[in-house]
Design a protein around this nucleic acid. Structure first.
Length: 568
RNA sequence: CGGAGUGUAGCUCAGCCUGGUAGAGCACCGCCUUCGGGAGGCGGGGGCCGGAGGUUCGAAUCCUCUCACUCCGACCA
C-alpha cells in the first residue's frame, strides 16, 4: 500500500476529550472517529487492526471446533420475555418497535437467540456437543461510555455458546475454550491473566475473566507470584499472614485518647504499629439490628464478602452515628471488641492478633494490649477484607501481587438458565427429552485493540505487537522526487516486499523526513526501512524496529530476507 | 440517574467579565524557497459562535429554556 492511496489522518494535537493513552493514540493515529457518545467509525487504518484481531479469533475458534454463524443485531422482544430478561435487563437494553408496533431490541448479547436456534436445530443427543460462535456488532446503552472503544455503546464482540448433554461435556468444552482464549491473547501479543470470576446468581463452579494487564484498567486483580492463581480483588480469598495467634505479652490497658478518632491519628499519636490496630465497622444485621465487622487498621472491608455473611443484611448498609450511639453508647471513633454490646464477626487476620489496640466503646478511650479469650471471647471468624499486595496466595503458592486489568474476555458455564426457561431439549439415547446444558464465551474484539495499545505504547505513539499491526513494514524514501537512485531502490524494494508477502506501507508523500518518521512511529509500524542517497552510496538501507533506538545498516540486497526472517 | 464542567473553523484554543458585526496556531488549497526528526515566505478557502426565545439601536458576549458532549460514581466484552 502507498500513502498516496492509503491516506494517513494523523493529528499533532490530542483531542481534548481523550483521557487514556489508547483513546488519545487511536484518535491521533487516525484509527477511529467519534460519531456520537460511544459510537465510533473505524477508519481504514484502525479497521486493518480490528480485522487482524478478528482473524486471530476466528482462526483459533475454528481450530477449537466451534462453528461460525451470524445472528441478527435486531431481536424480537418475545424471546427476551420468554427468558425473563425483557423485564430484568434494564435501560442498557435499547428497545424500540417497528411500524406494526411490535417490540424489538438491539442485541447486547445473544443467549436468547442462540437458545431459540438450538431448540429448533438440535433434536438429538447425537448432535451434541456443539459450540456456535459469531463475530458481530453488539449494542449496550452504557450509562457512561468512555475511553474510546474501550467502553463504547456499539462494539465488536466474539460470542460463543455451547450446548451439552451433561456437565462433564460442558466442562470439557470449557477447558478447550480456556485454552483457546489463552492462545488468542498470546497471539495478539498481550500480557494477560485468566482470573477466577464471580459466578453470581447463575451459580455453577466455573467462570473466568481474561484481563490484559495495564495501569489504566478498570478492574483490580490479584495474582500469585508463584502460580497461575488469579482473581478479581473483590473475590480473592484473604488469608491471615500467620497460622497461630501469639501468646499475650502485654496487660490490658485503658488509655485516654481524646484526639484519636481515626486509625491514622491513633498510629501517629501513640506510635502503635498500624497492623496491631483494629477498626470496628457497624452495619445492619440480617435480623434488622446491628452487627460489628472487625478488620485490621491497615485493611479494607470487602463489601461483597460482608454482604454474603448470614449475619449481615443484604444489601449492605452502614449504621449511622445515631444508631451506633444508641446501641453502644460511644461514637464510631471509639469502637472495639471489648465489652461490645452487639454481635460481631472478625476478619481472619484480626483473629490471629495479640496485644492489639482498639476502641474501648467509651468516647475518647482505647484499649491497648487486647488479647482474644483473655479479655474478650473470640467471636465468629470470616474472610471480610480485600486482599493486599504481599498476602499469601490462597492456593498456598507464593504471595499475591495486585495489578490493574482490562477485561477482554469472559467464559462462563451457564448451566440450564436459558435452555430451561426456553425449553431447549434434545432426546437422549433412551428417547427421553433432556434439557441441554450451556456454556457461553465472549471476547471484546474491539476492546482488544484498545487494550493492546494500552499495554504497548511509548511517548512517540503506538508500538504494535507484530501480529496485529496495521502494516508490518514502513518503507520511507528520503527525497524521492529528487533522487533517481532512491526512487529506483524504493520501487524495487516495494515490489520485492510485496512479492515476499510482507505488508508494507510505502510513504510516497515526499514529505520532510521528520514528518514521515513521526507518523510512522505514531501509527506504530513494527519495522521501518529508510532509503536515502547517503546509504545507497554504500549499497545499504537503514533498518529499525519500532522498539529499537538505533538504525542498523543492511545491504539493499538482503533487507527483504532480513525482514522475512524477523516477521517469521 | 446523581454530582462537576464544556460547547466559537477539521483539531487545539483565544475573544465573553466591560455588548459595536469573527480571531490565532495546526490542518487544507496555490506559488516559491527548503529538505535526514513534525521547515519558512506570500496568497487563499473554510464559521447559523450547539439550538430556541428574550433584553438591546445592536448579542459569540447579558438573561431564560433546551440539546449535545466530557469528567467523577453504580454496570460490563
Amino acid at each position: 500500500m502507498r500513502t498516496s492511496q492509503f491516506p494517513l489522518h494523523t493529528l499533532k494535537e490530542t483531542p481534548s476529550d481523550a483521557e487514556i493513552p489508547s483513546h488519545r493514540l487511536m484518535l491521533r493515529a487516525g484509527m477511529i472517529r467519534k460519531l456520537a457518545s460511544g459510537l465510533y467509525t473505524w477508519l481504514p487504518l484502525g479497521l486493518r487492526v480490528l480485522r487482524k484481531v478478528e482473524r486471530i479469533v476466528r482462526e483459533e475458534m475454528d481450530r477449537s471446533g466451534a462453528l461460525e454463524l451470524l445472528m441478527p443485531v435486531v431481536q424480537p422482544a418475545e424471546l427476551w420475555q420468554e427468558s425473563g430478561r425483557w423485564e430484568q435487563y434494564g435501560p442498557e437494553l435499547l428497545r424500540f418497535h417497528d411500524r406494526h408496533g411490535r417490540d424489538f431490541c438491539l442485541g447486547p448479547t445473544h443467549e436468547e437467540i442462540i437458545t431459540d436456534l438450538a431448540r429448533h436445530q438440535l433434536k438429538s443427543y447425537r448432535q451434541l456437543p456443539v459450540n456456535f460462535y459469531q463475530i458481530q456488532t453488539k449494542f449496550r446503552d452504557e450509562i457512561r461510555p468512555r475511553f474510546g472503544v474501550m467502553r463504547a455503546r456499539e462494539f465488536v464482540m466474539k460470542d460463543a455458546y455451547s450446548f451439552h448433554l451433561d456437565q462433564a461435556s460442558l466442562e470439557e468444552t470449557y477447558r478447550v475454550m480456556h485454552a483457546t482464549y489463552c492462545r488468542i491473547f498470546e497471539r495478539c501479543g498481550l500480557d494477560f491473566r485468566a482470573v477466577a470470576a464471580d459466578t453470581g446468581a447463575i451459580g455453577g463452579s466455573a467462570s473466568h475473566e481474561f484481563h490484559v494487564l495495564a495501569d489504566t484498567g478498570e478492574d483490580a486483580i490479584a495474582f500469585s507470584t508463584e502460580s497461575d492463581y488469579a482473581a478479581n480483588v473483590e473475590l480473592a480469598e484473604a488469608l491471615p499472614d500467620r497460622d497461630e495467634r501469639p501468646e499475650p505479652s502485654k496487660e490490658l490497658e485503658l488509655v485516654e485518647t481524646p484526639n484519636a478518632k481515626t486509625i491514622a491519628e491513633l498510629v501517629e499519636q501513640f506510635g502503635v504499629p498500624v497492623e496491631q490496630t483494629v477498626k470496628t465497622l457497624v452495619v445492619e444485621s440480617a435480623d434488622g439490628g446491628l452487627v460489628a465487622l472487625l478488620v485490621r487498621g491497615d485493611h479494607e472491608l470487602n463489601e461483597v464478602k460482608a454482604e454474603k455473611l448470614p449475619q449481615v443484611a443484604s444489601p449492605l448498609r452502614f449504621a449511622s452515628e445515631e444508631e451506633i450511639r444508641a446501641a453502644i453508647g460511644a461514637g464510631p471513633g471509639s469502637l472495639g471488641p471489648v465489652k461490645l454490646p452487639i454481635p460481631m464477626v472478625v476478619d481472619r487476620s484480626v483473629a490471629v492478633l495479640a496485644d492489639f489496640t482498639a476502641g474501648a466503646n467509651i468516647d475518647g478511650k482505647h484499649y491497648f494490649g487486647i488479647n482474644w479469650e483473655r479479655d474478650v471471647a473470640l467471636p465468629g471468624v470470616a474472610d471480610l477484607r480485600n486482599v493486599v499486595e504481599g498476602d499469601p496466595s490462597p492456593d498456598g503458592k507464593g504471595v499475591l501481587t495486585i495489578a490493574r486489568g482490562i477485561e477482554v474476555g469472559h467464559i462462563f458455564q451457564l448451566g440450564t438458565k436459558y435452555s430451561e426457561a426456553m425449553n431447549a431439549t434434545v432426546l437422549d439415547e433412551n428417547g427421553k427429552a433432556v434439557t441441554m446444558i450451556m456454556g457461553c464465551y465472549g471476547i471484546g474484539v474491539s476492546r482488544v485493540v484498545g487494550a493492546a495499545i494500552e499495554q504497548h505504547h511509548d511517548d512517540k505513539g503506538i508500538v504494535w505487537p507484530a501480529s496485529i499491526a496495521p502494516f508490518q513494514v514502513a518503507l520511507l524514501p528520503m527525497q524521492m522526487k529528487k533522487s533517481e537512485a532512491v526512487r529506483e531502490a524504493v520501487e524495487k524494494l516495494y515490489t520485492e516486499m510485496q512479492a515476499a508477502g510482507i505488508e508494507v506501507l510505502l510513504d510516497d508523500r515526499d514529505l520532510r523526513p521528520g514528518v514521515m518518521f513521526a507518523d510512522c512511529e505514531l501509527i506504530g509500524i513494527p519495522w521501518r526501512v529508510v532509503v536515502g542517497e547517503r546509504g545507497l552510496k554504500e549499497g545499504q538501507v537503514e533498518l529499525r524496529a519500532r522498539t529499537a533506538s538505533e538504525n542498523e545498516m543492511v545491504p539493499l540486497a538482503t533487507v527483504v530476507d532480513r525482514l522475512r526472517e524477523a516477521l517469521g
